[in-house]
């Protein structure tokens, strides 16, 4: 086999856990709210006490994925699981927190490392013991399409046997900043953490530039709101929920629309 199969998904949004929590129309459900915040997952342990909210969302999304895939954490631990993390804006909150803390002289030694976008996949890899191929990409939905295709190539190449594609987006802490850019970010801004596990199967995936967003991408946008890098993963979850071909998904970011296609 030189392609991939969708092995599981995990979804948390400001609307709740799973795809079933999405409203029919996010704009109507959000009302006057510009941001639909995702509650901070309640995870116990010293490491999680100091970790950022976006880290906790990432860790929790992967836990939901394991439930969906019927896998234990021991089954995905080790060097055979790749992690590809994507975010467009998910580091804004930690950057903001560090700037505020530093201004008041209250930045501790571990404050700064959590400002890196790669802090989220770091906590995920530590929590689940994932030591395979590893990358963090910065960008929105089109970048997630790139990540999904890369995940497929890694599996096809034999560099890993499974790949976790994860995205986390938070907006609350920088709401006033994001409010200035309606063209790029849209409304409502819905916080989300979403992930998909790709395993060996069919078909091989590739990326192509397209002019139009797919029906499913539009459906995700309508039901979830603006979730940036999470959107294609929500689309996979929607498809999985109704038993449709998951790979007819598009993502748009900074004027480019990319689609997955069977290679």
């Amino acid at each position: 086999m030189s392609g991939v199969r969708l092995g599981g998904v995990g979804v948390i949004t400001g609307w709740g856990e799973g795809i079933a929590a999405l409203p029919a129309d996010a704009a109507i459900a959000a009302g006057a709210r510009m941001v639909v915040p995702a509650p901070t997952p309640a995870l116990t342990g010293e490491r999680f006490r100091r970790a950022t909210r976006e880290c906790l969302l990432g860790v929790k999304a992967v836990a939901l994925l394991l439930d969906d895939a019927g896998l234990t954490r021991e089954q995905i631990a080790g060097t055979e699981t790749a992690v590809l993390y994507v975010t467009a804006a998910g580091y804004g909150a930690s950057n903001h927190a560090f700037i505020v803390a530093a201004e008041s002289g209250g930045a501790g030694p571990l404050h700064f490392p959590y400002t890196a976008p790669s802090a989220v996949p770091a906590e995920v890899t530590i929590e689940y013991g994932l030591r395979g191929p590893y990358v963090t990409l910065i960008g929105g939905a089109a970048t997630t399409i790139e990540a999904l295709a890369w995940a497929g190539r890694l599996i096809a190449d034999g560099a890993c046997t499974r790949a976790l594609v994860l995205a986390v987006e938070t907006f609350t802490e920088c709401a006033s900043l994001f409010a200035r850019d309606r063209r790029l970010l849209g409304r409502p801004l819905t916080e989300a953490a979403a992930c998909a596990l790709l395993v060996a199967g069919e078909p091989p995936l590739a990326v192509q530039t397209v002019d139009e967003t797919s029906t499913r991408a539009a459906d995700v946008r309508r039901r979830a709101g603006q979730t940036l890098a999470c959107a294609p993963l929500l689309a996979l979850a929607l498809a999985r929920a109704v038993g449709e071909d998951p790979w007819s998904v598009t993502g748009r970011w900074r004027g480019r629309t990319l689609a997955l296609r069977e290679d």
Partner: peptide
Amino acid sequence: TAAAGLYDAPGHALARRLGARGPVITVST
């Protein structure tokens, strides 16, 4: 705009400067 403050803004600025219309990717490891 918020767009200029996002971490992938310089990469896209470089692509525009070069007239590159292919894939534009920002890595942050």
